[in-house]
Design a protein around this nucleic acid. Structure first.
Lengths: 342, 342
DNA sequence: CTGAAAGCGCTTACAG
DNA sequence: CTGAAAGCGCTTACAG
């Protein structure tokens, strides 16, 4: 019969009243228990427990930064990013920081609105795992004064700290590697141009390697829909057989796509690598378990998260967070396996 | 030479001063532009743009709930959970809600501390993707009055809304299915007892099916380290050959583990399914691409996220959020493929 | 259509 | 060791 009156929030005032002390003393007891007499501390602790009191973090940090870190990424569909976020979260929680996730699903257009929303939470820092920053987005970020880390890239005009690697170099290195293995007719598989700026960069690296070796670089397959899924690999092989049947090596944008391609080859009785060599990118665990094991580039996605967290915390504790830019190139590694010969 | 004086935050007051109106009018312009004269609106909008003003969401919601949803999960290592979180996030952003991620890395001990931290942000709602709730955790949640959704389970004592399925039934159905296919010597692979309560529940279902069919249910393999990775599958096959070499079907805890097992079989020249049948759980995309394609249980992880979001939003907008519990059993599906015969 | 006052739940100086 | 006052950046009534 009680009217659905909203249960009043328990505030620090309630605790103070129950403990018979001032509100200030409760605040003090919570923040630095040692600065309060033992008796008071016990009284307050008891009241807190009794009332199930949980301080409102937002009220405390009014006018300052919250203990939240915003992470912006295209989506949680790419497992490389997920690993980074996972490691980031693990590293940050030791500092009492929690992640506020902002995903824009590969829509740069929504980046601004997303940024405004997230900045509205007054995060202590921001980790950008996505790579496209519009000029207005850059300005917003810069003027907000919030420490920023850009991850998974080595941007030419960094906003703050950087933890990443060169996608151009990765693209170059992989193609260079298989050229050295003896492959010449190489087809590159990439995602849609708008949504996949990093794939585009790797493609540039690929072109660089092809040109440097005087090879025909016209073989290209662009996947439009579900370009991060296994179906993309399947589709790539179908397109390959139709458009570039003389290909001897297929360079895929991710391990996942490469796996899809390998499976499709198996279904079609194409032998990997003797009929077609295949390479991936990312170095995910399944790459080495596949039969044949997949030649790929190893990116330490978790390490990117860990290093981003550390650099960010450093910046948060420093006076001029974005004054001295820090560049951390975590590098990559070519991992030759059975899906290519040589 | 400027001392590193911290850049003063732009507040609503600054906007008001620049626009030459009162602070109240700025607030009004932002929240309901129509209630303000056109001229005023233009003045204010101009000032906001000029100053790059972003309202402090925390200040506005002081004493109320923030526009944040806390999601608690063991970690982002299990891709089923990731898909749920991804869908949840996508569904929620339409409502202007952002996810605050809390992962406890399978440590129930830290659940309380994590809950307190997250509740300190005054989330508008909570989605629990993990499954162990201590009694004290339950009480905290219940007393907080925050709308709660429990996902990926059908708890017997729900805290609020529920969107999940019965792991016991999944376990039963899969084993029943392969028994009907003619398999009798079945080995069950599961994760560590403490960290994997759901795997344990599926194991119970498995036992139920074995008992119902008068089969020997003693074949069990427990994976301790890296039990969500492909290595677990590899290790399971190794253990299997040593401890239960007469096994004809291997029931794995996830598709990922099953894939690891399949790859190991391939390396050892064991034919799947003729030498050993293998089943997974989860219905991830790679399951159907594997050769042979993997028999599994299909769980619509993304749908769990979508439905959780909807139910949560409904609760948030209702008067008595946790009064009427809502149970949504999203079910599952046995998907027979090539890795089992029958 | 616009504004002055009070309050949301805390913390930061400042007194005692 | 403890407390009254002012303030953080907004919004909610209440006036006009």
């Amino acid at each position: 019969m009680n009217p659905p009156k909203k249960a009043k929030n328990i505030t620090i005032k309630d605790v103070a009243d129950l403990a018979g002390v001032s509100l200030m003393t409760v605040s003090r007891t919570i923040r630095k228990p040692d600065s309060v007499s033992k008796k008071t501390r016990e009284l307050v602790d008891k009241a807190i427990t009794k009332l199930n009191y949980i301080p409102d973090l937002g009220a405390g940090s009014l006018g300052r930064r919250s203990n939240t870190i915003a992470v912006i990424l295209p989506s949680l569909s790419f497992e490389g990013h997920v690993r980074t976020v996972n490691a980031l979260s693990a590293e940050l929680r030791g500092e009492g920081l929690h992640l506020l996730v902002g995903d824009n699903f590969y829509s740069p257009a929504e980046e601004m609105e997303l940024l405004r929303m997230l900045l509205g939470h007054r995060p202590a820092g921001i980790v950008m795992v996505n790579s496209t920053h519009s000029d207005s987005g850059r300005e917003l970020l810069l003027r907000s004064g919030v420490p920023v880390i850009e991850a998974w890239d080595l941007p030419s005009r960094p906003l703050g700290g950087v933890v990443g690697f060169s996608h151009n170099n990765v693209g170059f290195a992989m193609t260079e590697h298989i050229i050295n293995c003896g492959y010449k007719k190489i087809t590159f598989v990439r995602g849609p141009e708008d949504s996949d700026p990093r794939g585009k960069e790797r493609y540039r690296g690929h072109l660089r390697a092809m040109t440097a070796n005087n090879l025909d670089s016209s073989r290209l397959i662009t996947i439009d829909k579900d370009w991060l899924g296994l179906t993309a690999g399947k589709q790539a092989v179908e397109t390959l057989l139709k458009d570039h049947p003389d290909t001897d090596a297929l360079v895929c944008l991710t391990d996942r796509v490469a796996m899809g391609a390998m499976m499709e080859c198996k279904r079609r009785d194409l032998n990997v690598p003797s009929d077609l060599a295949i390479t991936g990118h990312g170095g995910f665990d399944f790459a080495e378990h596949l039969v044949p094991a997949l030649t790929t580039t190893r990116i330490d996605a978790a390490n990117i998260g860990v290093q981003s967290a550390r650099l960010l915390i450093e910046k948060i504790n420093s006076q001029q967070p974005n004054a001295a830019e820090q560049y951390l190139d975590v590098g990559f590694e070519i991992v030759p396996r059975e899906s290519t010969v040589g």
